[in-house]
Structure formats: structure tokens, C-alpha cells
Design a protein around this nucleic acid. Sequence first.
DNA 1: AAAATTTGCGCAACCGTTTGTCCAGCTGTT
DNA 2: AACAGCTGGACAAACGGTTGCGCAAATTTT
Lengths: 337, 337
Amino acid sequence: MPNPPTIKEIAKRLNLATSTVSRALHNHPRIGLKTRMQVQALARELQYEPNQTAIFFQQKKTFTLGIVLPELSEAFFSAAISGIEDTANKSNYMVLLGQSHDDTAREQKIVEIMKNHRVDGLLVSLAKNTVQYAHFEMLRKYNIPVVFFDRIPDMKDIHYVASNMESGTVQAVSLLLQQGHRVIGMINGPEKLIASRQRTTGYQKAMQQQRLKYDATLNIHSDLTKEGTRQAMQQLLSHKRKITAVVAFNDYVSQDAVQYAAERGIQINKDICFVSYANLPLSSYMAYPPLASVEQYPYLQGQKATEILLDLLSGKLAPDAYQQVIIDSRLVIAPKK
Amino acid sequence: MPNPPTIKEIAKRLNLATSTVSRALHNHPRIGLKTRMQVQALARELQYEPNQTAIFFQQKKTFTLGIVLPELSEAFFSAAISGIEDTANKSNYMVLLGQSHDDTAREQKIVEIMKNHRVDGLLVSLAKNTVQYAHFEMLRKYNIPVVFFDRIPDMKDIHYVASNMESGTVQAVSLLLQQGHRVIGMINGPEKLIASRQRTTGYQKAMQQQRLKYDATLNIHSDLTKEGTRQAMQQLLSHKRKITAVVAFNDYVSQDAVQYAAERGIQINKDICFVSYANLPLSSYMAYPPLASVEQYPYLQGQKATEILLDLLSGKLAPDAYQQVIIDSRLVIAPKK
DNA sequence: AAAATTTGCGCAACCGTTTGTCCAGCTGTT
DNA sequence: AACAGCTGGACAAACGGTTGCGCAAATTTT
């Protein structure tokens, strides 16, 4: 047999109408028991499998979720996608993948292609410097729901799941203060990122709680590249006040900062303590694991975002019942060595 | 406009046949310049986008590649998929994802679903304990080409890309021998895995080259779980000959082994040196990075496998011209601390 | 100027499935 | 016996696009 058996084939062999066969296979009550059995038997024998592309076309539904995210090789995203895929699969959805590589143009192209592929919905984590959202607005016209996660846009009326860095940051800074640190540097991300602002706010609140003054010059905004981090660290080290602790934007930044500091002869976790945000797995294996780390639950975020999207698709959730889920970040203190 | 514009819509407005519109949009030479321009102008105006699901159905082609792999959150695989996605995208293919979680049943189900989704081809890295390949054999009947990568099956007549652990292992063991180690333990993987056998062969060859005797009791096969690793390490530590170096199956195993050894009061990289295979990123940040690490080039493997699959699909490569690409692994020596 | 080609476009089938509607025959009611 | 109500299945349209073929008009060839 060169080409797979179709419903027509079955109909012809049994001298039935294709509609009858179709209904028989779906256990439609209007089809008599005898014919139903016949059809199903022959279907099994021929190893009939419905042609999904035909069904997709006919039903205008593909049971496919599009995922757009910056970089798969970042541990955070691969954990998130793991959660997405697991959740989607439970509802028999498949997952179509696209990496923006933090390039807005690529992001736009991927969204366009996914739209044409008629994905039923989209899960998106923005490219670092995406500031225009026309390619997402457009999807409304096509009734393709979008749920953003982690890197969410500054738009009204969207669904999203994100972790609030503020709570974790408050906890992190509080921990440091409690341990006696008074001059705490922060290597923060680009100012326009919401996550950066949350870190700043968290820092401020923690200080405020202890009636301490927030010093903005200790909060350095970097571009998160290795070079940027090194410059930020340099600034912190040459600050007129002597810093004894650093809150780094994430583990990658933290490790780069640690490296830079170590090169300058600084004793890690002695002269300067580091607190970070967990992006790396197995931080327990690291040479200088941060004192503590703010966990962002990427798998959970992916899972939750997918659940929302599926509910949107099944109609369990109205399209304009905008879901905005905040997953509180939480400080996890590293076990004492 | 509730539903997107179709080719029929354009035809009606312009009083043309749908066939003419279709051809005009494809710049078919038999369509006059004037009508062609009209059609294209209106298409732009209406923001016409072809309905891909209709095209997929009609053309029996989806421009979609299925990827089946064990675990996205393993760094090796997320790097590989990154290479796959990048390469596929260059040829305007999309990528459909499925994780087997090292469960053969799930692997089978995913392959089944992907077949029904009519992916044009499949890229597969096997689940740890998959030993029956019926679900892949079946794909031949449907003319869905498969390219395996990294974890490849023991089948005849398949396409695959894999790294040869032998060369890297020879280099690794040779390095240890050269440094004076004589009793070298190996924590190997399940015996049926090709990659395990390659490591064994590599070990043997390196010994042979120095006219040394290979001691099979130093080569422990484990199941790669943390517990299995600890048991293996225990065996090695209680070996009658005192080992001074260990070659671990991969970085995860290596780290577990290191941990176990450290608990037993062993001085890492002093009493016992470790050499491993690179699965983890940023090994330079690890507390006890292996002395050296065998690099397997996951991104490259993904890329190469995808190229083969695409060539198969485009007909550049005959389906029975079985491609079996071996990417030599290479020992990378860690920079001295 | 007649014949041969080329140009430009329409007609209709087709891909595989679902689903609304119609119809024939049987059963049962009065 | 006539009529209504079921039952079980057939018919055909529709989803949106592609493509082989046919045919008239325009153009070129001899």
C-alpha cells in the first residue's frame, strides 16, 4: 500500500457512505451496531489512522500550541518549556517551537509563521529588547489567544504568568541586612525591564523596613552581558562606600561577577557575599554558590501559563477574562557547606 | 472581518477564477501582468495570508519536523534542539516537540501523534531503555524519514548523527596514564547503550597503546541515577587496587561521584582525579570541575542531523543512502585554576 | 490571408473529513 | 389500513487551495 487508507477506502469496501463510516468510527448513536462493528473491524485491519491535516483543515483547529522564547539553552527556559510540553501533552496538544534569540525581528517572523500554521494559541516570553507589540496585537484579529510568561510586555489586557521578583528581592536584601550587611550592591538589568524595576522596588522596600536609606548609586543597571557585568562590578568595587554584599540579577551575572571579584583578589563569601536569582541547575555544584538564591519556579510558570491557554481554548475561560498570575519568587538559602 | 480573507474572496471581488488568483499570487507566467498586479494589490490590501492548513492538506506536506528526545532540561539536549531549530528555520521548517522523559511508552505515543500530525520528518534521540523499534520501523511505510542523533538505536539501515565517545575516551584515559595514573576507574552507563560500549573500547585501546592490561572490574556499569552512581563509586573505592582517577559517564554522574567521594573524606583532584564528558554548561563555575572533559558538540549534532533530514526531504539525498555521521568527541582540558 | 502558436484565463476535479438534511423502510398506534 | 414516529443510512456541501486541461483571442509565422 503506497498511501495510507482513508475513510473513503473503507466506505467503498463495505459499500457504505463515507459519512456512515465517519460516524461509525465516532460511535455515533445513529449508526446501527452491526455496521459500526463492521466498520471498526475493517478500520483496525487496514490500520486506518485519520489524516489529521484534513481534520485540522476542516475543523479550523490544529491542537498545536506555539511557543516563542528567547533561548532554549538557558536553563530557565528549558525548564519552562518542559512544563509547557508536559501540560500540553496531557490535553493532547502538541507544541511548536521557536527561538527568538532575543532578536525582535526574528520574534516577529516566528509569530507570523506560527499564525499561518494556525496554531491554536501562543505562549510567549519576549525577546530582551522587544518594545513594540504590533505582532501580538495582530493576533487578536485572528482570535489566537496569547499567554505571556516570565518576560511579559507592558500592555493592557493580556494574559500572563510571571514571577514577582519583588518578594524574593525583599527577602534577599532582608537576609543580608539581618546578617549585618549595610552596604549592599545590586547588579540589576536594563531599566525598561519590569523585572529590573521589581528588583529595585524590592531592594527599596527591604531598606525601608529597617528604616535605612536607599542609595541609588549602589543599584547598577547593566545589559547582562559578561562585559556589562564586569563593568558593573568594577563600579561597585570602586564605590566610595565599601560594599560587603552583592545582589546579582541572575546566576549567570552572579558567576561573572564572582569571577571578576576573585580576579581582583577578593575573598568570596568572606569579603563580599553574593545573593542571586536561580537560573542555573545544580547550583550546589558551583564553586561559589550564592549565599542564597531567589527561586522563580520556571517549570511551574510554564505549566500555569499552559493551563490558562488551554482553558482559554476550551472556553472554560472567556477571552477577555484576563488572567494575570503572579508567582511569588522565594528566597532559598543554600545549605551551609 | 470575522474570518480571514481567502483566495475565493479575492476572486469574487475581481471577477476572476480562483485558479487565476492562485496563479497570480505565485507569479505564474501564464497570468498577464495587469491581472497579476491587480490580484497582488488586492491581496495586500486585504492582508491576505494563505491558509497553511489547507495547503498542508492539499500538498500532503506540513513543513514541520518532529523532535523526540528524552529531556529538555538536560543541557545537552537543549543545546541540540537549539541547533535543530536554527537549522530548520533557515529552510522555513517548523519544529514540533516531544519529550519522552526516558519512557519508552511515551516515546511511542509521541511518535504516533507526530505521525498523525503528518510531520515531514523526525529527529529522534532515544529514551534510555528503548530496545524495541517497531514504532520507528512503522514510519518507513508512511515514508516519514527519521534521523537519529546522539542516542541511536541498534538498527540497520538508518540515518544518524552521533558522537563517537571512543576517540574522546582514548584521549581522556591517555591523559590520565600520561599523568602517571595506573588504576583508573570508570563509571560507565548501561551495557546495552552504544555509548557505553564506545567508552569501554576507548578505555581498552588507551591501555593497549601503553601495553597495559585492561581490568574489567574497574569498569562499572551503572544506571546513571544518583543512587546508581553512588553505588558504583562505592565499588570503585572498595576495589582491591587503589584507584587514583575516575572517568565518569557524564558531568551529572561525575558530580554525584565527586559528592560521594567528598563525603568519604577523599580529596578531590588530589587523592582522586576526575575526567568526565561535557553535558553541563559553565563547568568552569563548578566547585570541582573535572580535570578534563570530553566535548560532544550537541549544537553541531543537532545541526548536522537536521541538515541530513532536510536533504532527505528535498530529495537531495536518496532515502536509502543511509547517512551515518560520526562526530568525533574531543578531550578539552580544563584551564588550570 | 490562412495556419500555427502563444497568451490569458476559466472550469472542474481533488485532497480527507465532518455534518446538516433527506429518505426509505420498519414498527407501532388507533 | 392509514398515518405518525423511529431507525439506519445515503447524499452532498463545505473547508481553502492547487493544477491539468480546454478554449478563445491575440499574436506570430509562412
